[in-house]
């Protein structure tokens, strides 16, 4: 069953290889170097740290 062999081979070899490549790329690209900077990525100039963005229900009317 060549198709199954191909898929099993892909699962066993290709996927771990892709994962290792991703990890190597991330390390080389400095993705793990500045965790404090990465943690700030959801924020920007228009919605910086400290700005709450979804407080819309009753509590804010008191």
């Amino acid at each position: 069953m060549p198709v199954i062999s191909f898929i099993l081979l892909g699962s066993v070899v290709l996927l771990p290889a892709v994962a290792l490549w991703a990890l190597r790329w991330a390390t080389a690209a400095g993705q793990f170097r500045c965790p404090d900077k990465a943690a700030l990525l959801p924020f920007d100039e228009s919605e910086p740290v400290g700005v709450e963005t979804d407080l819309i229900l009753g509590g804010n009317r008191r």
Partner: peptide
Amino acid sequence: YFIPKVIGRPIHSY
């Protein structure tokens, strides 16, 4: 994504 965005605070530990 949404917890930090709503409360305006980065995640505790990246």
